[in-house]
């Protein structure tokens, strides 16, 4: 009986901590994402394979950004309840959206360090990290989001046009 109470109390406590700090963290993360997206807007990102002819002969390099995101305890409980009825799981959507935008931003940051202006053939990948064994024990979701592509330096003509 006492054990049950402790178990329930710890679920409520962890849920509350997860909800409060999770929401704060999410809001802060979104603010930083929006700010950095504005900062890196000049680096163009395409998922087409071939850069246009004006990039011919320019320097290129592989760039990659990745992030591992975990879900929070409260939203995990909510999602488990929601899965009974089906429908969209907003908390997981937010987690994946944040992670993917963060991965793209890190890829853009690497492109800027390499002096590139555009990234072509961008691919987004998602993989699950929490193993089946941990899931059986009620493990929380843990996803890796990767963005990679080929960064190209600006054609000399474009730099002249921009300045």
């Amino acid at each position: 009986m006492a054990d049950d109470l402790i178990a329930i109390a710890s679920i409520i406590f962890l849920g509350a901590v997860g909800y409060i700090f999770g929401s704060l963290g999410q809001r802060r993360h979104y603010r930083s994402i929006v700010q950095r997206e504005a900062q890196y807007r000049d680096i163009l990102v395409f998922n087409e394979k071939l850069p246009p002819a004006e990039f011919a002969g320019q320097d290129f390099a592989l760039v990659c950004g990745s992030v591992v995101m975990g879900g929070d305890y409260f939203r995990q409980i909510l999602a488990a309840l929601k899965m009974i009825f089906g429908g969209r799981l907003g908390s997981f959507e937010a987690m994946l959206d944040r992670g993917r935008r963060e991965a793209i931003l890190r890829m853009k940051a690497e492109a800027r360090r390499k002096g590139a202006r555009a990234i072509f053939n961008v691919r987004l990948e998602t993989s699950t990290l929490s193993s089946a064994e941990r899931n059986n024990k009620g493990g929380l979701p843990c996803m890796e989001l990767i963005a990679y592509g080929t960064a190209w330096c600006a054609p000399s003509g474009a730099e002249k046009r921009a300045s």
């Binding site: 962890l14 901590v17 999770g22 999410q26 993360h29 992030v67 929070d72 987690m95 992670g99």
Partner: peptide, 23 residues
Amino acid sequence: MAGLKNIVGGELKGYTELLNESR
């Protein structure tokens, strides 16, 4: 540490670093 971080959600920096090193 990742288990603790998993309570509040968000980025798990330890794993991000680990996977970047491996890549």
